[in-house]
Design a protein around this nucleic acid. Structure first.
Lengths: 252, 252
DNA sequence: GACCCACAAGGTGCATGCAATTGAGGCGCA
DNA sequence: TGCGCCTCAATTGCATGCACCTTGTGGGTC
């Protein structure tokens, strides 16, 4: 596959981008649970920008389906229905099958190393919080998508993966991710081997099992103070990109 | 398939939504060619709103990949590369296979009627402008997606279909759509018959042939005055939604 | 004639202000 | 006590203003 130009994020300015990334992360780490309120003022205050910018960021996230905007009402973190969650997983399966189909047998050595490093990180984080495990697992898939060098595919996979994460907050029992990690390793192996059919079916069953383990029963809502929750996300630390490169798991 | 609540467009206010719809339509009808400039001022003036709103609309369209935002520069209609166009079609194929898989054998009579009516409309428009033919062909696919009642799927199919439209402006020779119309009829027939495998393969080859007919060679750019181009789109005329929901679907 | 620089104009980046809407608490009344 | 209305604080909807960036252009120099 011929190398292609890297993806350019379609972010308007970048203050907006900073806020979006922070909120996305807060959401997938379940610091912001579905239904959590996101007033423009508080957001602006927390990130040191005006409401205009916060509002714009909320607009972007709404376009991605992570946030719900209701006219004249405070925006909230999206609360997808069970059926929407199932739909998201169905779409995700198709998209990620496409990803591995394009990638099978075409990974460079350094890419393989990067993937392995990421899974190692997942392994190391296994004892940590569920939130981090879930984030890392998701980022593995986004990392894969990135390697296709198809900006559109990256965007869709990321979006739908985030949405799926969101549903985990709602419908999943406490995460047990060990098997998932092994499945990640199996996928890498099949990719390296270049067995297109095999890797597609691996990805399919992997996501399918994640979905069925996840979509079992509703979980209780929780609430804390928005400003507190966002504190650790306010200054965009280490990981400028959603998927940070391997090695070190810990956030500074 | 159990009825589900209808999709709610994630549009913030609705002035923004009006502008988005108008611009989307102008773009897919190729009134706004790739690379066309979209200054916030002119947009605001044309639609009778402030720059703030125009800006917000541009942000949404950028998130959909129809518009490119460059910092401190005038926004332009996106100009996807040939490779991106190919990627978009690949994704589209997978998504629409999913659509027809979900729909096979599950259409109501009125839905079938609606589909047939739409294809008839395509037939009638065959002598008209290419722009209208292309729009109708695209809307057929979006109509199908709508019938899945999966908001997420609708959104992704719509988005990627619009993007594909956009690439037609760039890389396609003048449209010859008769065969496409027949293919649409064949898809409907297979859906009614409920032959899942058949309809998936039909959809696959349909889109594949559209793609290969489309992605042949670059076409010359064209330019006119933005304000003139947008005039017919400024007042949101007949079709408020791009594709109106089928009678039966509407919830509550 | 070609190149370079400085300046002006057009356009975006962002904050702020004001109007409009909503939700909630308090009060009266049955 | 319970229900409904009313008022007010909180919050969004949107326009406008100012600062800054980018680009095109004209004059000066070699």
């Amino acid at each position: 596959m011929a190398p292609r130009p890297a993806s350019k994020t379609a972010v308007p300015s970048d203050k907006v981008g900073v806020i979006c990334r922070a909120l996305r992360r807060a959401i997938i780490e379940q610091a912001l649970a579905p239904g959590a309120k996101l007033p423009e003022d508080s957001l602006g205050e927390r990130f040191g920008v005006s409401r205009t910018i916060a509002r714009h960021a909320l607009g972007q996230l709404a376009a991605e389906g992570l946030v719900e905007l209701r006219r004249n009402r405070i925006a909230v973190v999206a609360t997808p229905s069970w059926q929407e969650a199932r739909d998201a997983f169905d779409i995700r399966i198709e998209l990620e099958r496409l990803v591995v189909r394009q990638l099978a047998g075409k990974l460079t050595k350094s890419q393989v190393a990067e993937l392995n490093a990421h899974v190692d990180a997942e392994d190391r984080a296994r004892d940590g919080s569920d939130a981090v495990s879930i984030r890392l697992a998701t980022e593995f898939h986004i990392l894969l998508a990135n390697m296709t060098n198809s900006p559109i595919l990256v965007r869709y996979v990321s979006e739908v993966a985030y949405r799926c994460c969101l549903t985990l907050s709602l419908y999943s029992r406490p995460h047990s991710s060990e098997c998932a990690i092994n499945e990640h390793r199996a996928i890498i192996a099949a990719l390296v081997k270049g067995d297109e059919a095999k890797v597609m079916s691996l990805m399919h069953s992997h996501l399918d099992s994640v979905a069925s383990r996840a979509l079992v029963a509703p979980a209780p809502p929780r609430g804390r103070d928005l400003l507190d929750i966002l504190a650790p996300y306010a200054e965009e630390g280490e990981s400028e990109r959603v998927v940070k490169m391997p090695k070190v798991v810990r956030a500074r």
